[in-house]
């Protein structure tokens, strides 16, 4: 890793997430292996790479989704807040602290309001006024409030794709997560909204750590303090984002990908 003078000053913060010798496999097929990385508090950590690089599997492993997926096997060590996630007493508590947004938007078949109030209610918040505040704040941050404020009673699953994606983001925010993971969130959203959400993410860095998986290398450049490049189930390189884009790379493949020669 080259110079640590990244824009967020991440080096100074404590370590949020430490991954050691991670290997993810489905049956005989290895989705990702040999990943070693550390993500710091309040950092935006970008992950770039073409399809089938193992990015989504990586996020699933962090969230311990292998528990519900009998075919998925995770080896290696993942420490979240210093706690080994392999030996959790309550995996649900871990997941409730990690907000995830996957590329396919999912509006749950309940009202928009209930979609966002779902997680707070599970946390035990029943006070209507308190829920109102949370719903409005999360929808505003996800750049959706203005569009749905007059129809909070509409079914979340019948919103447009872009709206559902922002609803998904609002739902992830409603968890008040420690760690927010976004997986190619801009696929279903128009460019203007993408920019608005990107601004929100920059703001959110004050509060949460963010892992941003993206297929748009420029998005990683705009947002991420440090970026990892995944290729074909392998973590090729991790570095300060600016370094990757200015050609200070250890692996030629990284430069080729960043410059758009493949992917």
């Amino acid at each position: 890793m080259h110079g640590r003078q990244s824009k967020g000053g991440a080096a100074a913060s404590p370590i949020k997430l430490a991954v050691k010798d991670l290997r993810i496999s489905y049956g005989k097929a290895v989705a990702l292996q040999g990943v070693n990385l550390e993500i710091h508090e309040h950092e935006i950590f970008g992950i770039i790479g073409p399809a089938n690089a193992g990015k989504t599997s990586f996020l699933k492993a962090l969230n311990r989704m292998d528990v519900f997926n009998t075919g998925m096997r995770v080896d290696g060590e993942i420490r979240f807040n210093g706690l080994d996630t392999r030996h959790l007493k309550n995996v649900y508590a871990l997941r409730s602290r990690i907000g995830v947004v996957f590329p396919l938007p999912v509006g749950l078949p309940m009202t928009v309001y209930d979609n966002v109030a779902l997680s707070p209610r599970w946390r035990g918040i029943t006070n209507k006024a308190e829920l109102d505040v949370i719903v409005q704040r999360c929808l505003t941050r996800a750049a959706l409030w203005d569009e749905v404020k007059d129809r909070l009673g509409a079914l979340g699953s019948l919103l447009s794709g872009g709206q559902q994606q922002r609803l998904t983001i609002a739902r992830a925010l409603s968890q008040e997560p420690d760690l927010l993971m976004l997986d190619e969130f801009s696929i279903a959203v128009d460019p203007v909204t993408t920019m608005r959400i990107e601004d929100v993410l920059k703001e959110l860095r004050q509060e949460v750590t963010i892992i941003l998986v993206t297929n748009l290398v420029q998005q990683a450049r705009r947002l991420a303090d440090r970026t990892a490049f995944f290729l074909n189930g392998e973590c090729v390189e991790i570095g300060v984002t600016e370094d990757l884009f200015t050609g200070e790379v250890k692996d030629k493949r990284t430069r080729d990908y960043v410059e758009g020669r493949f992917g």
Binding site: M65, R95, W122, R171
Partner: peptide, 8 residues
């Protein structure tokens, strides 16, 4: 899966 991801 959306619910599980929220910690349900």
């Amino acid at each position: 899966e959306a619910c599980w991801n929220m910690g349900a």
